[in-house]
Nucleic acid binder design. Structure first.
Lengths: 111, 111
DNA sequence: CAAATATACCTAAGATTCTTATACATAAAA
DNA sequence: TTTTATGTATAAGAATCTTAGGTATATTTG
């Protein structure tokens, strides 16, 4: 996760949301997808991604399956049932967060 | 900074933006203002706020002035010239970040 | 063909940011 | 009189990320 410090804390939510959309993804694919949808602005580093995936799996939100494609290993992840619930919660938090930060940038309060 | 992990990394931007709007604020005032504009959802902890203020001051983005009000000390902060430039940059980053996260939540890409 | 780049996974040391807990002090409210 | 509100500050530890490395195969480029 490079660039602005703002992305700190959002990686898990990004992973969960992408898996909810795509159903099944592997790590490298996630980094490429994020780069694509942010027009290259957000580059997830492997040092952040893989530990995050392992932690989400250990917490029971993801389950993994290894496959060999073109003689190279891919570790596919998908949401568990708990992971789907967690994703919904994280997305609510994200929308709330965005609302709050937008109120900050475009203040409606009085002085 | 409590609640969702998403706020990690956004504290500096919040401080800078509030100071840009209000011109002059002290620490405790910032915590109350943030609570107000987020309807109590975001509570900035003192352990996060004061080190952040000191760091922004050390970096030359803020300057401080101590005043005694009702027999209690207040440390007022305001933006330096560099701080104003920095604020503009941070706000651009924030808007970009929000755009990217919204694209994530409301995807426009194809599968 | 050799070298660089892309694909694909992983970990460890250190930096940064935050939480939790604590300390000190005055004013107002219960 | 004790709690809550106001006001600043630091220190230990947790969490998240960057940086830098390691391993391996496939493809592209010079």
């Amino acid at each position: 996760m490079k660039n602005s410090q703002l992305y700190k804390g959002s990686l898990n939510t990004i992973i969960l949301k992408l898996l909810e959309e795509k159903g099944r993804m592997y790590g490298y694919e996630i980094t490429q997808k994020v780069k694509e949808i942010t027009n290259g602005e957000l580059a997830i580093t492997e040092g952040a991604l893989y530990p995050a995936l392992h932690k989400l799996e250990a917490e029971g939100f993801l389950e993994a399956e290894v496959e060999k494609v073109d003689n190279r290993l891919r570790k596919y992840y998908k949401l568990t049932e708990n992971g789907q619930l967690e994703t919904a919660n994280r997305l609510s938090e994200l929308e709330e967060f965005i609302r709050n930060m937008q109120t900050l940038v475009h203040p409606k309060w009085s002085y």
